[in-house]
Design a binder for these strands. Structure first.
Length: 597
RNA sequence: GGUCCCGUAGCUCAGUUGGAUAGAGCAACAGCCUUCUAAGCUGUGGGUCUUUGGUUCGAAUCCAAACGGGAUCACCA
């Protein structure tokens, strides 16, 4: 039974019993601020019209009613328009004994809602390795997937690979010109790194060429037109489109290296797309849809036979959907992919995890699909997230100012190893166990660091300052879990034994015990909110609250040396439930928690 | 220039379906390990919630404008 629901009912009853006027608004509560006594606060200002009395009297009216007619509270106080209620211990105990045996009280089993949700991430280009920006994308996508599963949905993880076009041709050209037949094996480099290096090499060579041309008096645009490298890139792209065997083979080979490299990183991060889409498959699709739009009069054709859509009535611009040479542009491909997804899966919702630099693109895409009358258009959602910035500004692959994903992960795991070893926490662990722990902690610190920030906000990452392991961090929460497990081990009780025994309802609770039950009671609501806001940060910040509350409880009260058996049992139960909630909530962030550290 | 996003402590961030004296972590300082894991706990200092107006019993939160930062507006992806 939901505590707040009980209070809502009781307050409604109180209002109709106390006053003649009916109150039609919502009853909403807030948490009592810690400088006041109580846990639940009713703001009485909105009720004054109903009561016809001043805030103080209204508050004490309701408080008195609750005290006399219900067993919900053990006391109350009124401060101006705030009625602070101290919830009766019995209510807390009833609630806790209700949720204790239900391990999954806040988590629905996957596929129970009957809804299918597709979530697309990280959709990288195949011309360079993954960087910190992709990590934010992956962490958000994979965490949201877990949250959706916990809400009972079937989740399909898709990924769109931008595997062709100008950028890919640049890497290929550089390999042809400067590669000397290099392979991942011959160079000892990870495939995606090798290809990325060629991409950078192209960029540098191009820059040099342009600089030279400009010194001859050409402007930027003219220089680009004269550029031999740019021409060669274009030739490669055309050759690819014409199915030139040599170019296609090289393209396949180099993309193969990249995919293999990505897979390594994916494995470390524990992600695996259920369905991959490739730009090379869809890049020329979408033309039928454009024709359909032309027939319906949604699109229009210019004299040069390029096709456009006029979105000025919706506050946007004119947008090209088909080039004058009849080829697709990016958005045409996205229209095609959206159709494919709808055809391939019966989706109730389709989410794109893509940075906020593409806000405009998705606005246009969704609008076009809606105008085309696609039924699924209303189920599309762009999970837009802010860029990760360095103290020096935005990351740029071409300029080599990116924080490489593999390097960052490796560094985090190394730091975890150092810290753990320094603290002497590796004692008694096998080498494998220790290595697992380092990985768990390093990745946990990184994931938590990124996920605790509201997705839509840009975030700052300073490579010079290592990510913390103390305070509001993943390892802090992991530590709390390990600490609780240690207590539970020493209690010598199995989880079944802990859950089976009941606490007498006349047991008197300590404030820290109440705080803990209160914190635990929010879990379900938090997951719901995280789903509807597409925001894992809500979960991240919630777990921190739970862990902090537990640590305070732990410091103030002894679990194993409690005054009596009942008290000890209750505290063991609280510890058990707290550890479970931490574990489940961290799982929603795709962070594992250790049993010792 | 048009459109969109952002602006909270020295730093990184919470808090925005309108509620009390705006909260955490880091950094600084002062305490707490013969008792369940000190990656912990407790305390101190630290604020013009960018600014100005408006809405009202009440605004960090909603509205408008200004200032500052960013993104985007390609026959690129």
């Amino acid at each position: 039974m939901d505590i707040l629901k009980e209070f809502t009912e009781a307050i409604k009853k109180a209002l109709s019993a106390l006053y003649t006027t009916n109150y039609t608004g919502e009853i909403s509560f807030q948490k009592t601020r810690k400088e006041f006594v109580g846990e639940i606060t009713l703001v009485t200002f909105p009720l004054l019209k109903t009561s016809g009395k001043n805030p103080e009297i209204t508050g004490s009216d309701i408080g008195t009613y609750l005290q006399q007619n219900t067993d919900l509270i053990k006391g109350f106080n009124v401060v101006k328009g705030f009625l602070n209620l101290s919830v009766a211990d019995k209510i807390w105990l009833n609630y806790f004994s209700d949720i204790l045996p239900k391990d999954a009280y806040a988590i629905k089993s996957a596929n129970s809602s009957g809804q299918s949700v597709m979530i697309e991430y990280p959709s990288p280009n195949t011309n360079k390795p993954l960087h910190l920006g992709h990590l934010r994308n992956i962490f958000l996508g994979s965490s949201l997937a877990e949250i959706l599963k916990a809400r009972g949905h079937k989740v399909i993880h898709s990924c769109l690979y931008n595997d062709r076009g100008t950028n890919i041709s640049k890497s290929m050209l550089a390999w042809q010109l400067y590669g000397n037949g290099a392979t991942p094996e011959s160079s000892g480099k990870k495939g995606d790194k090798l290809v990325g290096d060629f991409y950078v090499q192209y960029s540098n060579a191009y820059k040099t060429e342009i600089t030279e041309l400009k010194q001859k008096g050409l402007n930027e645009e003219e220089a680009d037109k004269q550029s031999l490298l740019a021409k060669q890139v274009n030739d490669l792209t055309v050759a690819w489109e014409n199915n030139d065997t040599g170019v296609r083979n090289l393209w396949k080979t180099m993309n193969g290296w990249v995919y293999k490299g990505f897979e390594t990183t994916y494995n470390t991060l524990g992600i695996k797309p259920d369905k991959s889409y490739y730009e090379s498959d869809v890049y020329n699709l979408g033309k039928q849809t454009v024709l359909e739009g032309l027939e319906k009069g949604i699109f229009y054709k210019k004299e040069d036979s390029s096709v456009w859509i006029d979105l000025t009535a919706d506050g946007l611009d004119h947008k090209l959907v088909l080039r004058s040479n009849g080829t697709s542009v990016y958005i045409t491909q996205d229209i095609a992919t959206a159709n494919e997804k709808d055809r391939d899966f019966k989706l109730d919702k389709s989410i794109y995890v893509v940075g906020n630099e593409q806000d405009y693109h998705f606005k246009v895409l969704f609008l076009i699909l809606k105008k085309l009358g696609r039924k699924y258009a209303d189920n599309l959602y762009h999970l837009s997230y802010g860029m990760v910035e360095l103290p020096t500004g935005k990351m740029k692959s071409r300029e080599g100012t990116v924080v490489d994903a593999d390097d960052l992960i490796e560094g985090m795991i190394d730091t975890a190893k150092e810290t753990t070893t320094e603290l002497g926490k590796t004692e008694g662990l096998t080498v494998t166990e220790a290595n697992n722990l380092f990985k768990m902690l390093g990745l946990g610190a990184l994931r938590y660091f990124i996920l605790k920030v509201d997705p839509k906000k840009k975030m700052l990452f300073d490579p010079a300052e290592s990510i913390d392991f103390n305070g509001h961090t993943g390892p802090f929460i992991q530590y709390t879990h390990a600490r609780i497990q240690s207590v539970l081990r020493k209690s010598k009780l199995s989880s079944d034994e802990i859950k089976a025994q009941s606490i007498p309802t006349d047991c008197v609770l300590h404030q820290k015990e109440i705080d803990l039950i209160y914190a635990l009671s929010d879990f379900k609501t938090v997951i719901k909110e995280a789903e509807s806001a597409y925001n894992p940060a809500l979960v991240a910040n919630y777990i921190y609250e739970v862990a902090k509350t537990y640590n305070q409880f732990y410091h103030e009260l002894s679990v194993l040396n409690a005054d009596n058996g009942v008290q000890k049992l209750l505290r063991v139960q609280l510890s058990y439930k707290c550890a479970l909630v931490i574990k489940q909530a961290m799982h929603l962030l795709c962070v594992e928690v250790p049993d010792r550290m």
